[in-house]
Each structure stands twice: as structure tokens, then as C-alpha cells.
Design a protein around this nucleic acid. Structure first.
Lengths: 346, 346
DNA sequence: TTGTACGCGTTATCAT
DNA sequence: ATGATAACGCGTACAA
């Protein structure tokens, strides 16, 4: 079939094991034979068979990427291409290949993980988002399989290497910013409530409120999918209240865009009648009308660092647990406004 | 180490080969032993080692994805997440895993391909875009390695299974649409001229012009990167002409967005002073100001079909060459306008 | 219907 | 510094 290590050995007049050592650039092989072997490899167009190598030395030079839920939905949100970009860039530097899960349901994804791990297809795994009570994490921990998490673990954060923003702080800052603009009726439009990031931000939001002595109202909290449609639903619910909010903290630019559109349809002006602030600072936030004030969470760096930590762990199993906090930054644009005086209250 | 086929065999009191046959669901094994073996597998939490399997039967159940140039740039353009979404969806259906290239330069990407192929990491490859004189295609053809191409091959289209839009026709239609609106000074802002899609569209554009007896002007043709910055550059060049165009055919929504912004900065109104039409119908085209008239090329379907054809080819090597044309559709929005009468010409 | 034995292409462990 | 040989875990022809 294909050209193997034996063919090379024959041509170079050495034993197969010698060829193997040349590939590994073992220092115990003379310059001379190394050259002869390399020439033979060149001449035959030899490339090592990864499967055989993986089988023999229990290593793959590949890392697995686990997306939450279906890639189908995931890729609708620009967060993932961007985080992938970070991961890919770093993986490439270290010469690791990337292996993607394609499962759609939670169960299928778990199967994907098991196949990757027990099938020995990858040396480590990056979990692209953090869920509450994630069975995948338990599974990987039980097997002591190298992995890193993008986001904050729901529990046992001290024993899980993860890369995250300080979402609590970011949400707090953002809410304080709105309070500073005079708002005291502030809604929170969060993403999927099974995601840790959502909980974290909610906490920061609550803290800002209580610090300012503003009462927390249950009806101001909405949880939807991290997609544009989520934003639409949220607005409808909030505007149906007797006392609708005058400002909104939204979990994601994509949702915020849905919010903006729906608001526009309902004749509510942003930022005059409603301030909106969101997260991720996607290109969308510059393009929208009005441009969105948004928190840049440095998605690329998130991916990069997650990959970096994983590879460190793979190559040095005694590596200690790490927690990396990637800094965020509020990008102020035109979607937030000083609260207009309500004359009837004066 | 991990639990192997032998452990299962021992527990089920059969030979390893029997276990192997149960995995393959061979009809020559009695129901009874099958059940006993399956129970044993369950009990031990057995999962087959993919590397060993691949080594033994020369198959990986994985397909390789080759992005053009660096993933770094690629993921800036929403085209790729979307095409990935299509590929992933279909691959998942057929239980294939996805393997991504991470090379950045042309040379590195070629190395990635060689590693995937000769390293036997994948059963087939999807090329995510079509370049002029692509050495990768030659390489894969020489080795008769299964692959499909998204886009139109530069040469030997009869011997390469590919999935494409009719970009010639689409560009022609789009140009005719502008001509129908009274424009006769129409610019063409294309992407990278090494991409076949760019050439195809340019041809369609030219054909529409000549059909209407409009002279083709070299200075109206610009080639830039498929990114927002590309659009900016293009506009500056075109507006510097003595007779700038009154309408633009732009290769991509992202570029068109750059065009729109630059036009706005220069005080040129769209669509009153300049009509703009572009390709891909990304979300961006709905969001922009004004919303872009754009050709929906059905990116998801492009990915889906490319994956489908590839898997057919992998599973049936005698499969004949296919050419799939995914239909397109012009989505008319507010970026094109009847040409305003030039009073000085009257 | 099931078991035996060998091969897939490498790496790793002994020797020499 | 290099060669012989035994794993790695699975599939499969052949035998029974």
C-alpha cells in the first residue's frame, strides 16, 4: 500500500527502528545516518501513519472541541467562530490538529466526548461553554482526562482549569453605568439559564442594584436563547408590564439586536426611551442602529488561552490547575442615554 | 490500560474475534452470544480504540476540512461558520467526525493536507473554496483521494465533484437588474482574484454589459480581500475617477458593508447617488443602513451537499463525478435605486 | 457459529 | 550508535 517506515529503512539500509528514531530526531543517531534516512524519506515521499503512531505511543497531537448543543445553533452566534479562531491560532502554533464534535442533543454530545476520549482520538478537550451540572465535566474529571473550560465551572472551580471573564464584575459595572445615568428600572435579559455565564451576570446585576438600594423585581428578569429571536420575546414581555423598565442589560449582541428591532417596531426609541447595553462587542454592535454600547470580552483571547492551558496540561500532566481571567472593556456607543425626566413624577 | 476487546472477550467467555464481530454486527454470530458480549461491553464501559481500528481496516470515519488561508482571517467572514454548519449537520447524520486544518500560509495548508491524507487521519476531504491553480487539487487527484470542492474548479471541472452556485448567471442577473434601473456606469468590486468565484462573477458581469452594449471599462474593476477593509479601499479608488460609477456590484456583504460606510463618510448617498448590490445575504445585509440588496447563495446547503457528495464517494468509490448547482435568489432590499437623471446631460 | 493467528505501521525495550 | 523484537488494539482469513 502506502510507503511505510520499512520501505524507508530498506532504501536507507538501516533498521526500521532507526528510521523511527530519526523521525523523533533522537540524539543517539549519527548525523550521517540521519541524513541518509531523511534522503530516503524524501525520495519515497514518506509520511508517518498517525494511527499507527497513536496506537504505539498513546498520543494523537489532536485536541477535541466540544460545542454546546448543536453546531447547528451554535454557529448562528458569532461568538463561536471567534473563539474557534483563537483556539485554531494557538493550536496551529503548537502543531496540534483540531477535532470537532457534531452531536446535536445533549446526549449525543456526551457520546461524542466518550468516543473521543475512550476512542483515543484526542489528547485533550476544550469545552466551549460552561453549563450548570455538566455531566461531561464529571466524566472527564473521573478519568483525569486533560481538559479546559471556557467559562466558569458551576462547581469545584478550584479543581478545573478554566478561562473566563469576570462576568460578575462586568455585569455589575454595566448596571452601575446605567444607574449612573439615572435609571432605576433596569431589566435583565439573560441567555439560557443553564449557562453559568448567565447566572454570573445576573448576580453582578443584582449586586449593583442592591448597592444602590434599588429593589430587585422578579418580573424584570427574562431568560431566552442567545439568539436574535430571544431578544424579541423578551421585549414583548417587558413592555407588557405596568411599569416597564427604562434600561436593559442584555446578555449578548445578537439578542440585543433582536431587542432593538422589536423596540423599533413598537415605536420605542433607543436610547431616548430605552437604554440598551449588551455583551460581546461583535461587529453587529457597531452596525446596529443605534450602535450598541457593549462589553468587549475578548473572545479571541478566551479561545487562545483555553487552548494554551490545555496543551500545557497535556504536555505536563503535573501542571497545576489554572484560572485565567481575560479582561473586559465597556465600549460606549450610542444605545445608552441619561434617563429622561418623567414629568408626571415631578 | 484502558478496557480492550480482550477484556470484553474474557468476561463474556468468547474469543476476541467474536467480540469484534459483534461490534460489526456480523450476521454470523448467534443472538445469544451477541447479547452476552454486549452486556460485557456495557459492564466494562468498553469503547473501541479508533486508532487500532483505523490501522486495521484503513478507515477513520472522519473527514478533513480545508480552509483557504488562515483560519485566522477565514473566520472573520460569516460565510465559513455557515458552510461549516451545513457540513457539520450532514456529517453528524452519517456519523462522521470533523477534522480541521489550522495552517495559515498556503504552504502550511498544503502540509496539513498531506498529513491528513498520508497520515491516514481522514477518509476524505472537503475543500472549502476554490482557488486558481490549486496544487492541493492536483495532489488529491493524483492520489485518487476522495474529496469535494465548494466552488467551481478552475480546470478539469468534469473530473472533480463540486458544489457551487451558478455565479456567472447570478452576477449577470444582478448586473442586468442594475442596467434595468437605468445604470450604465457600473463598477465591479470583486474579492481575491485568485478565487474562481471572483472570475466567474466578473464574467457574468461582463456578459450583462456587452449584451446591453455598454462598454467595459478596466478602471471600474477592483479586486480586494473579502473583508470590510477591502470595501473601503475599493470605494476610494472608484470615486477618484473622473467618471465614477453610479452603481456597484460587490462580491460579498462584508465588503459591501465597508463600501457603505466609506460612501457615507464621503457624503455619497445610497441608494440615491449610488446603488449597491452584493452577495451572500448574510445577516449583515438586513442590518446595514440601508439594508443591502444581496444574492442569497444558500451557504448552508453548499456545505451540506459538499459533505453529502463526499461521503457518497467515500462509501462508494465507483461513484461518478457530480456537479451540484445550488440555486440562488436575489433578495431585494433598499440599496438599489433607479438612476437619477443627470440634468447636465439633458 | 466460533476460535486461532497474523497483519496493520509505529514506538519502546532490550540487546549488541 | 544501531538492530531485533515485542507490544499497541483491532479486523479478518483460515481453520475447526
Amino acid at each position: 500500500m502506502a510507503v511505510t517506515i520499512k520501505d524507508v529503512a530498506k532504501l536507507a539500509n538501516v533498521a526500521p527502528s532507526t528510521v523511527s528514531r530519526v523521525i523523533a530526531d533522537s540524539p543517539r543517531i549519527s548525523k550521517l545516518t540521519k541524513e541518509r534516512v531523511r534522503e530516503a524519506m524524501e525520495e519515497l515521499g514518506y509520511h508517518p501513519n498517525f494511527n499507527a503512531r497513536s496506537l504505539a505511543n498513546q498520543t494523537t497531537q489532536a485536541i477535541g472541541l466540544i460545542m454546546p448543543s448543536s453546531a447547528n445553533k451554535v454557529f448562528q452566534n458569532p461568538f463561536f467562530p471567534e473563539v474557534l479562531r483563537g483556539i485554531s491560532t494557538f493550536a496551529h502554533e503548537k502543531d496540534y490538529a483540531l477535532y470537532m464534535s457534531t452531536g446535536e442533543t445533549e446526549d449525543e454530545i456526551f457520546q461524542d466526548v466518550m468516543k473521543m476520549v475512550q476512542g483515543k482520538r484526542v489528547d485533550g478537550i476544550v469545552l466551549l461553554s460552561s453549563k450548570v451540572d455538566d455531566e461531561i465535566i464529571d466524566y472527564l474529571q473521573d478519568r483525569e482526562f486533560p481538559f479546559t473550560l471556557i467559562g466558569k465551572p458551576f462547581k469545584e472551580a478550584e479543581s478545573i482549569t478554566h478561562v473566563d471573564n469576570d462576568n460578575y464584575k462586568a455585569a455589575k459595572e454595566v448596571t452601575e453605568y446605567l444607574i449612573g445615568l439615572g435609571h432605576d428600572r433596569i431589566g435583565f435579559v439573560g441567555g439560557n439559564s443553564h449557562l453559568v455565564v448567565t447566572l454570573d451576570r445576573l448576580l453582578g446585576y443584582e449586586k449593583a442594584l442592591s448597592n444602590s438600594g434599588i429593589v430587585y423585581r422578579d418580573e424584570y428578569i427574562i431568560h431566552e436563547e442567545f439568539l436574535q429571536e430571544g431578544g424579541q420575546e423578551a421585549v414583548k414581555e417587558l413592555l407588557a408590564l405596568k411599569e416597564p423598565p427604562s434600561a436593559l442589560v442584555v446578555a449578548d449582541d445578537l439578542m440585543a439586536w433582536g431587542v432593538l428591532n422589536t423596540l423599533d417596531e413598537m415605536g420605542v426609541n433607543v436610547p431616548t426611551d430605552m437604554s440598551v447595553i449588551s455583551f460581546n462587542n461583535l461587529m453587529l454592535s457597531e452596525v446596529s442602529k443605534p450602535p450598541l454600547t457593549s462589553v468587549d470580552i475578548n473572545i479571541f483571547e478566551l479561545g487562545c488561552m483555553a487552548c494554551k492551558c490545555l496543551i500545557e496540561k497535556i504536555e505536563n500532566p503535573t501542571e497545576h490547575v489554572k484560572r485565567i481571567i481575560v479582561p473586559h472593556q465597556i465600549m460606549k456607543r450610542q444605545s445608552c442615554h441619561q434617563k429622561t425626566l418623567q414629568l408626571e413624577e415631578a
